[in-house]
Design a protein around this nucleic acid. Sequence first.
DNA 1: TCGCCGCATGTTTGCGCAAACATGGGTGCC
DNA 2: GGCACCCATGTTTGCGCAAACATGCGGCGA
Lengths: 358, 358
Amino acid sequence: MGASREGAPRARSRPTRRASMADVAALAGVSAQTVSRVVNGSARVEPETALRVTQAMQKVGYRPSSAARALATGHNRMIGVISFDLKTYGNARALEAVVDAAQGRGYSVNVVTASARTRKAVAEAFERLGRHDVDGVILNQADALDARLALPSGMPVVVVDGDDDSRFPCVQTDHGAGAAAAVEHLLGLGHRTVFHLGGPADSFPARHRSEAWLRVLAAAGCPVPRVVYGDWTAESGYRLGRSLAERPEMTAVFVANDQMALGLLRALREAGRDVPGDVSVVGFDDIPESAYFPPPLTTVDQDFGGIGDTSVRLLLDRLAPGELPDGEGESGGTTYIAPRLVVRDSTAAPAGHQAPRT
Amino acid sequence: MGASREGAPRARSRPTRRASMADVAALAGVSAQTVSRVVNGSARVEPETALRVTQAMQKVGYRPSSAARALATGHNRMIGVISFDLKTYGNARALEAVVDAAQGRGYSVNVVTASARTRKAVAEAFERLGRHDVDGVILNQADALDARLALPSGMPVVVVDGDDDSRFPCVQTDHGAGAAAAVEHLLGLGHRTVFHLGGPADSFPARHRSEAWLRVLAAAGCPVPRVVYGDWTAESGYRLGRSLAERPEMTAVFVANDQMALGLLRALREAGRDVPGDVSVVGFDDIPESAYFPPPLTTVDQDFGGIGDTSVRLLLDRLAPGELPDGEGESGGTTYIAPRLVVRDSTAAPAGHQAPRT
DNA sequence: TCGCCGCATGTTTGCGCAAACATGGGTGCC
DNA sequence: GGCACCCATGTTTGCGCAAACATGCGGCGA
């Protein structure tokens, strides 16, 4: 790298060295420490002095160096987020929510992505994040045990929609409650049972949604149809939906996400089965498109704002108390964020059913 | 490799001070500078010495402090990205692409979001980013002139899908080419003209798509229908689509994005107009759902990977040459990333048309 | 009146690292 | 065989900031 030739003690001739506290201090006729106090608003400074300092800061265009501050204080006001692909609506929303919440509290967000859900890709993502001085980490759908592999020990971690690990606080959409609401809605409409098009088995939210579906069916004493598992894509919903569409006894389906529901709707349409006339369908996620599906989809809306706020708050709480008193990582509880059933036009009482209960 | 309990020479008073180069150096019996050389792989170090150092690093669980490095070197290996809402597919994809590209080059990404497209919200986003020591900034759809308001002068900037500013390199999807391909596809099918459902007027991509639509129509001597402008949402597509659906002369529509196209499709269906039998529709974005729309949508696929790679490369190029030789910000060119028309089932020759040209 | 206290501010120090310069032993070259 | 040079490594310094401690001054209670 070229520049910075001169051996002069000061870099006067360098292009434009950023103004430092010393520059501001000199201009304002105070010590650097006083400038620091003004910047941080912390200690008591004579208003008049503060004003002089503020003016000097503006004059030289002073911006604090977060690197220097981080070095001196030991933290960075930056959190790391580990996310899977942002093509998936939920992941993008969760990231956005975390960014907003962090910004609201004066923290910035360093994002790393794991390209695939393989152990190798995940480990690499952690490793990348570990190289930066983040104060804490939010894992989105990454198994906590993976985190321990590559994250520096002692790093505060909050897990979102991942397996609860007694070591870390965990924030989850209450997938169980959402799925239960969906299934109960269908049963309440009078359907004898509810089929299920599940998400990938290695996905935490998918598992919880499927489990709740099964639980509600069992509790209601309904016959339990065999589950088929897709991969979240509309393509898989379509592919699996074509077989499903051939089951005449199927009058209601709970699909693990909206995109697969979209594929299923197409398969049903092609098979000549009307929705909701012949078959009712419920999705999960409430993607913006789902209100305009053919027909508008009944689905479960996740509270991403709540997830972002809660996860950031939990993380920051762990930063405060004495910078990790080491033994005190006992906060392994799980916080559930309630989702909300959004009823639209894809669900109705089964054909021939007279008066829907409820 | 979990462990790494204590064992550090220090670490008695404070919970667990992170191992520093000095610790590693002491353990390996070398100077801190030699450790630095090993860490950076830069200078020549005796292999045997390097091995000792490496082992010492592992033993004490050494991780370099990026804050200290940033302080010493003046840069952070971190770029900032300013993005609008991540609910929008394209924004999320662009962010993901930039993150991936940056990671591939050893840079991390600090994301800030602007909640709204108001000048105030955008200025705040810039301000937030300015507080962190990023080496450069990628603006996604943020007008470059806004950047100058709040970004430190001299900060390298690359603008993605924003107004070209001779001061900054600019990377854009070739919206014009994409829109032209869409319109030409429709005309080629035999349609007399093509209607247009545009995006919001304050959006750069929307403007360019609309302009190209108009240009192609004019060049082909087609009548130019009045444009209606939505806000990217399916809702607006539906709302505006209901009026559009009443125009019997309308046989082809170019819609500025897929979500609005989805709304339009619904409006057309409700109006009893078959797609593509009565009306052909082309969208833009190729969101994952569009292949399963009723009917599968002909649309324009953006190369987000190319956008990410290119924008990061351009930005990093500007970092290298002598750390901004100040006057040398002349690289104001625009790089166009070619999109690709994806033909599906929503387009066909108009009713009564015999032999589609081409 | 004296002494103590609190307040505004200054001074010193060190965070962890890398750039610049220093050193000392070996090697090649004529 | 002498000198120059190179290579591996050590030493010094300073990046910009904030924590800890120091200073000096004015006010207030006894």
